[in-house]
Design a binder for these strands. Structure first.
Lengths: 328, 328
DNA sequence: AAGATTATGTCAAGCGCTTATCATAAAAAA
DNA sequence: TTTTTTATGATAAGCGCTTGACATAATCTT
């Protein structure tokens, strides 16, 4: 393990001088600065980040708590966030919390023990207090944790509304909302709200058909089959793309023609789904912008923990991607 | 920040005693052990992992270098690995290296500086030496790095063979391999090899139609369109599921009936693709087993860096998932 | 009751780095 | 030349924790 003293020896100067170069303080001539850099390069020296952290320097570690990167939406979001963090010189500790409250709690403890500089929270099994107690800079994706924790999310309300309107425009009159039922504070709730509001404006009747997100595939399929077979439905706003895809597939099995008999719009619009299921209309969340904003806000909090933000709630604009499944 | 001395004060004993409890050495009575644990709980104390690491203790950090978690296959693999690592008490530093050699190099430096206990390498832009130089325990997914770095992968050769045979069994005689052309050491190469070998056994002619993995969607589509319009083809072994999906979609656009006119088999079989494209036949990689083995081997290396393994190459069995697209 | 065993405490060094202090030298400005 | 500015060094403390050395009790053996 190459250490500071080795570099100093190599460069023929004192550790103080090397440290001055690395941390860029005090007086240093260009000549020695260069000499030191060369020595570092030759020895392939990397300052021991652990030792620096102990000294009170930032760890440059950020904890990412999300449900599961195997979900295409979260996969893409985490990917973009990681990229942003990397650009800003941060390293990402990945925490797949699933729906496990206990696991999320453990992660939080762990992140504290590892002295992370901040947390981006995208899984929300826990209450506010647990996060507050960390005393760390936090930004939240898609869920309000508390008044002083900024929250970034797509404009889910607008999305729900856009989707409903689009189905209506293409002739649907029996429009269902299919997906997670009202989960307090959950983002799908605002999608549902957008749906409800628009249904009301259009003077239609609202129908909510629950398909719980973390159920097994078979149970979800059963719920959808029940909907398609036993209800009069010609339009569906799905709470997310995966649910929409399921509906698409089951419709196919049942001989229901999309979009003639039934129009569907999904929600999320991850790149994978957009590219590989080109028939699906969907509400696209601006994942790159979300990632960028999350990181920007977090960095602001880290660099200036006491400063009040001028805004604690950010709804980023969604986009309606019109394709075959909604009648285009 | 609660520290060791606070716990000692609270428990009414010395720091040594507390340390003895935490690190479980020397003599400790059940009574004080309990007292200390209570104090820790009350104060919500977490040993400062940074300080412990500096002391020479393991950091319990593992670096994961993969191309991109927004790809469903890697997303699922990373998710499973992270889960395994968590179970074993490790934390995951996520590095999305993409195809960027320079970025991967930077990550490697960073992981060393952060004193990670080991690395699971799944992106392979770099040569062997760079990884060797880290002096860290490493296991590799899907690519040989060097003789003394264990490599875990699915049995890609068998997969390529199974796929080809299946298409043949369902009547295809003009079977193409579509995907990445021969990239030295790349896993798709062994898939291709399996295809070639089987084509030979079946006394057919081999056809390789290159569709480069990191091209843009449009270019890939162009290549596929060219294949379908200008070549006599009734069976396709795709190098991965996403390519297979693309072929499925374009076939649909061109009015080519699957599986009557053309049979397709993909490769990877991530849960997302399996669940949400139920028509696609594919060679399923045993992602959970891969994750488990990677972590198991890495831990072995960490706990006993000098010990020789009895095996450095692991091919895990793949499975043919028969569905509609291949003629079932 | 004497020695062995177990339990706890005090003290200090050290992990690799940062940073402050003090001292000294060399270069630049007056 | 003298003062100021700039450049470097030597030394030491400290970040929070671990661990070894040594000392002293308390408890257990026989």
């Amino acid at each position: 393990m190459v250490k500071l003293t080795d570099v100093a020896a190599k460069a023929g100067c004192s550790v103080t001088t090397v440290s001055r170069v690395i941390n860029n303080y005090g007086y240093i001539s260009q000549k020695t600065r260069k000499k030191v850099h060369e020595a570092m390069k030759e020895l392939n020296y990397q300052p021991n980040s652990v030792a620096r952290s102990l000294q009170g320097k930032k760890t440059k570690l950020i904890g990412l708590i999300f449900p599961d990167v195997s979900n295409p939406f979260f996969g893409e979001l985490v990917s973009k966030i990681e990229n942003q963090l990397f650009k800003h010189g941060y390293k990402t500790i990945l925490c797949n919390a699933g729906n496990d409250k206990e696991k999320e709690r453990t992660y939080l403890q762990m992140l504290m023990a590892n002295q992370v500089d901040g947390i981006i929270a995208g899984a929300h099994n826990l209450g506010i207090e647990e996060y507050q107690r960390t005393g760390l800079p936090i930004v939240s994706f898609d869920r309000k944790l508390s008044d002083n924790i900024p929250i970034v999310s797509a404009d889910n309300f607008k999305g729900g509304s856009l989707a409903t309107q689009e189905l209506y425009n293409h002739g649907a009159r029996h429009i269902y909302f299919v997906g997670n039922p009202t989960l307090d504070g959950h983002p799908t709730q605002r999608r549902l709200l957008g749906y409800k509001e628009t249904i009301k404006e259009l003077k239609l009747t609202e129908h909510i058909h629950p398909v719980i997100f973390n159920e097994t595939l078979a149970l979800k399929e059963m719920a959808i089959r029940d909907l398609l077979e036993n209800h009069k439905v010609d339009g569906i706003v799905a709470s997310d793309d995966l649910t929409a895809l399921l509906i698409l597939n089951i419709s196919h099995d049942l001989g229901i023609h999309i979009p003639k008999d039934l129009k569907i719009i999904g929600f999320d619009g991850s790149k994978v789904v957009r590219d590989f299921e080109p028939r699906l209309s969907t509400i696209v969340q601006p994942i790159p912008s979300i990632a960028q904003l999350l990181v920007k806000l977090l960095e602001k909090r880290i660099d200036n923990p006491t400063e009040e933000l001028d805004n604690y709630t950010y709804y980023l604009p969604v986009e309606l991607l019109k394709r075959e499944s909604s009648g285009n």
